[in-house]
Design a protein around this nucleic acid. Sequence first.
DNA 1: AACCAAGCAATGGTCTGACCAAGACCCCAA
DNA 2: TTGGGGTCTTGGTCAGACCATTGCTTGGTT
Lengths: 246, 246
Amino acid sequence: MADMTAAWEPVPRSRTFELVLARIEEQIVAGRLKVGDRLPPERELVDMLGVSRAAVREALRVLEAQGVLRSRVGTGPSSGTVIAAMPDAALTQLLRLHIALANFPMGDVVEARATLERASARLAAELVTEDGLERIRDPLLRMDDASLPREQFNDCDTDFHVAIAEAGGNRLMADMTVAVRNAVRHTLLTVFNKLDDWEEVASRLRAEHHAIYEAIAAGDTEAAGDLVEAHVRGFHRDIVKKVMDG
Amino acid sequence: MADMTAAWEPVPRSRTFELVLARIEEQIVAGRLKVGDRLPPERELVDMLGVSRAAVREALRVLEAQGVLRSRVGTGPSSGTVIAAMPDAALTQLLRLHIALANFPMGDVVEARATLERASARLAAELVTEDGLERIRDPLLRMDDASLPREQFNDCDTDFHVAIAEAGGNRLMADMTVAVRNAVRHTLLTVFNKLDDWEEVASRLRAEHHAIYEAIAAGDTEAAGDLVEAHVRGFHRDIVKKVMDG
DNA sequence: AACCAAGCAATGGTCTGACCAAGACCCCAA
DNA sequence: TTGGGGTCTTGGTCAGACCATTGCTTGGTT
């Protein structure tokens, strides 16, 4: 007799749109659909798969939410439904909601940021090009303007960290870094706006950013990683927690 | 005159389902919708928002793809659409497709695994409980069975790494680790099945796994991290690459 | 009184068919 | 040659109907 200790979980009854989804994913995984390829028009998929247009559209919506598709109305080369690759936006959105749902406590997010950005900074210190350095320097210098409003400072801060992540040349790590950083963008802005000693905090961040930049530019792997990790952890420990608890 | 260097990107014309999506996300971010809460039935949302049911359903489908919702037919307490929290499945699915689309080259994935699992192992060595240790030990011991088919060995391998990630107590890092590991599950299985010297490889993996387990059990943070990183990088360098290139 | 089965109502799932709106292309007139 | 309007393709939206599942209610039977 069969093993009865394992629960007899009901087979998840496939909904129509999931079958459509499976067909499309199948072609992606098999490599028959590549980035830039166009899918058949919705109405053709309806005929080919023998399902309603609503089912097709729900499947497409899922893939769009995963950053795999892009749809445009009209005729011509750029119209229709095409395979695209926008994982970072999809990742960001996903993390944002789950952080809001408190599935991911802020402490976990900080730990993840410290881990990812430390690794990104180390890669950057090893592999960065002159072009990459310039992309890091731009937001860095813009933050030096003392009259910069806090919201724009926050955006530059994001750009700075994103530029470092991308300088390492690892798209997956960069996208995860971007997603995690973006997911807490609103939270950080709220914190910034509550600060009484804004100028003091901004000065500290500027100094830390400059030190990180110097380490990366100098190709000092260890220093770059340590400084970024300390930057992320220190900022949350000393500033974010104080504001959110106090 | 305004700055003309920045491209005048067209404002993305909001589609109806995106408006619905925005309304629901709004309530999640504001904390008015928590895990376990039920959304109004689709037909009520249609009345409240003044849109078609198709639009509502497309929005719900997106949230479901993000692991935020769970829908069930019928009446009663467990039916309807409820806020759930299944980020790891959603993350896995997302990464799987993007890896298939080659947005994320295998080298990047390995780098990310090394980074995430190193950090997870360090956390585990510091924080693991007796219960957590047992969850790590279970797949470890099952892999010691030399007659275990390769596919099940692969699953146990996954379970082993997942258990370590979860032992650290950081849900976000654990979910990212799980997602990345799951996303390459199929690839690894293919590699396993192509190996001529399977027993030799399995022995090596077993030995490395045992060493990792011992380090975590002993609370040796540095060793645990180093061993896991070496395990991940070494496996891909020595085995996966050889099979996929040869 | 206890119990079981038939029926009912609520809810998500699916389909049909229609129309709208954006965008590119074609063709004709100036 | 050029400008403009028509038209076709394509995604976006909607209304309304029916199906399938599920849990609860109800009423009869023992």
